[in-house]
């Protein structure tokens, strides 16, 4: 379903489709160069055109793409990893490996609430199949889906004022590697020395929407 978002925007309700996959599919279309922004979020993709002329044509293109994707999703299961239906990703999702020392200040508390050992938290987290769902909250803040069930906890009741870059944390069904300079209410279970966000680099992001992420445990 398309919803108007101003002179140049359409907001797509994704329903059964995954926003990250839909955003990747949109960007692969030839007409995507006429778009200024393609912004996936939890259940939606926002598409903003460069120019407000042609919003009806853009809507028709998006509807056609949605119909193709919906048929593809039916054929391969609700959110099949490929879910292409003949129109899917021309490029397979990348895999980014992030070495993590599981030494975070909240590791013991997470283990206790999950009823398992800290080593088991590290094992579950590093064996999970994580994917980049969307960015938000702050520049470079990537929400990663795929946190194993036993580790799912609500956020901290009092957030920390400033979380340095490289802190690996979990909340709800998601993980994040903090980009630096933000407050944070997630449970900090580890750290990585891999720089995932650097505004002086081109591109600034090591992670992209749709990427698979492997957290590899390294000795503390």
């Amino acid at each position: 379903m398309l919803r108007r978002a101003g002179d140049r925007g359409w907001l797509i309700d994704c329903h059964a489709l995954r926003p990250a996959q839909l955003a990747v599919a949109i960007r692969e279309r030839r007409w995507a160069r006429e778009l200024r922004e393609v912004v996936p979020a939890a259940r939606t993709v926002l598409v903003v055109a460069e120019d407000r002329a042609g919003m009806d044509e853009l809507a028709a293109r998006l509807r056609a793409l949605l119909d193709e994707r919906a048929e593809g999703a039916e054929g391969t299961g609700r959110t099949g990893a490929d879910g292409s239906g003949g129109t899917g990703s021309a490029t397979a999702p990348r895999t980014v490996v992030i070495p993590v020392r599981y030494d975070g200040p909240d590791l013991a508390a997470v283990a206790e609430r999950a009823g398992i050992s800290p080593e088991e938290v590290a094992r579950l987290h590093s064996e999970g199949e994580h994917t980049v769902a969307f960015f938000g909250f702050a520049p470079g803040f990537a929400y990663l889906d795929g946190l194993p069930e036993p580790l799912r906890l609500p956020r901290l009741t009092s957030p920390r004022a400033r979380v340095p870059a490289g802190v690996v944390a979990i909340a709800g069904g998601q993980s994040v590697v903090y980009p630096g300079g933000t407050p944070g209410g997630w449970h900090q279970i580890g750290t990585t020395t891999t720089r995932l966000w650097d505004v002086t680099a081109d591109p600034p992001n090591r992670l992209s929407v749709g990427d698979r992420v492997v957290f590899r445990a390294v000795a503390p």
Binding site: A5, G6, R8, G9, L11, E37, V39, P40, A41, A42, R43, T44, V45, L46, V48, G136
Partner: peptide, 10 residues
């Protein structure tokens, strides 16, 4: 309503 993309003028 989970977070979703917003535009200037929203």
């Amino acid at each position: 309503l989970p977070s979703e993309g917003t535009v200037r003028g929203a």
